[in-house]
């Protein structure tokens, strides 16, 4: 039973972080239809920005997180303004944009490796330690990351529902041309979407680096989890990605109740496959007619 509770707590905490990754990626994909693989680069750059800031400015976690948010936002915006928008203006196919995004991710990883070296980088801030409740333990950076993720997802939901800018994003997502007709400046909305979606993952990346280390490759699994969460939950709504992320976190951990632990990725993909077969539009998604 102890094992069950430990797996459940880890699964929930990581699941909420996956949900954040999914929601941020889903916001970008849902609004701009850009298969933004380089989201993983924004994630890695957030961690490296925090490494640099805590080394050169102040060994303070808040400084690190602010640097991470800015780092991720700059990379996300740069991808949109310098690569995706020009490609879209040239009517490049979605596949072309996807390949460009993959190229950015791989080239960006190489640049990080050239700039910081191939060694793992650590965040020079005091350790936060661990939290123990009886038989269950969790690292405090993961707890904090999970808490911030939950707040950010709620804040994004409110922003999209309650503010003018949020409604503009939703309108552009629904119909780009119609949104332009009613006076919404869609290229600006796209840029805003990239800025918000990228900035959101900054804290998660920085706290992951605090919990572990920063490596050039760290963004790859993050972006994979993000889009599994999105397609698992359904592209229709933000809550789809939330459910997808939490389900992914829990199933991956719970599979270790019965199977050797190295099967957890297989279990997660099996779940993904099953959902895609049984509900092609995701858990919350409705099939378009």
């Amino acid at each position: 039973m102890d094992l069950f509770w430990q797996l459940t707590v880890t699964g929930l905490l990581t699941g909420v972080v996956y949900a954040l990754l999914g929601v941020s990626w889903g916001l970008i994909y849902g609004t701009t239809r850009t298969f933004h693989f380089a989201h993983g680069l924004a994630y890695a750059c957030a961690a490296y920005a925090a490494v640099a800031a805590t080394q050169h400015l102040a060994g303070n976690l808040v400084v690190g997180i602010v640097a991470g948010v800015l780092g991720a936002m700059v990379v996300g915006l740069a991808c949109e303004l310098l690569v995706y928008a020009p490609l879209r203006r040239r009517a490049t196919l979605q596949l072309g944009i996807f390949l460009a995004s993959l190229g950015i991710l791989i080239a960006g990883q190489s640049f990080l490796q050239i700039g910081f070296g191939p060694d793992a980088q650590t965040l020079k801030v005091p350790s936060l330690g661990i939290q123990i409740w009886g038989p269950v333990a969790a690292s405090r950076p993961l707890l904090l990351s999970s808490g911030i993720a939950a707040l950010l997802v709620l804040a994004l939901a409110l922003f999209l529902q309650r503010t003018r800018l949020g409604r503009e994003i939703r309108a552009t997502a629904r119909n780009y041309d119609l949104a332009e007709l009613v006076g919404i400046r869609s290229p600006q909305v796209y840029a805003l979407t990239f800025a918000i979606g990228s900035a959101m993952i900054g804290p998660a990346a920085v706290l992951f680096a605090l919990d572990n280390v920063a490596t050039p490759q760290m963004g790859v699994s993050a972006v994979l989890y993000a889009f599994i969460a999105v397609f698992l939950g359904g592209l229709e709504s933000l809550w789809g990605a939330v459910i997808g992320g939490i389900a992914l976190g829990l199933i991956a951990q719970w599979s270790s109740l019965w199977l050797p632990a190295y099967w957890q990725t297989t279990a997660a993909f099996a779940l993904f496959f099953l959902v895609l077969v049984l509900r092609p539009a995701g858990i919350l998604g409705r099939v378009a007619r």
Binding site: D2, L3, Q6, L7, T10, T14, A252, Q253, S255, S256, A261, Y262, Q264
Partner: peptide, 9 residues
């Protein structure tokens, strides 16, 4: 996390 949870158990 999963491997170590099993070891812990």
């Amino acid at each position: 996390s999963a491997e170590l949870a099993r070891i812990k158990a």
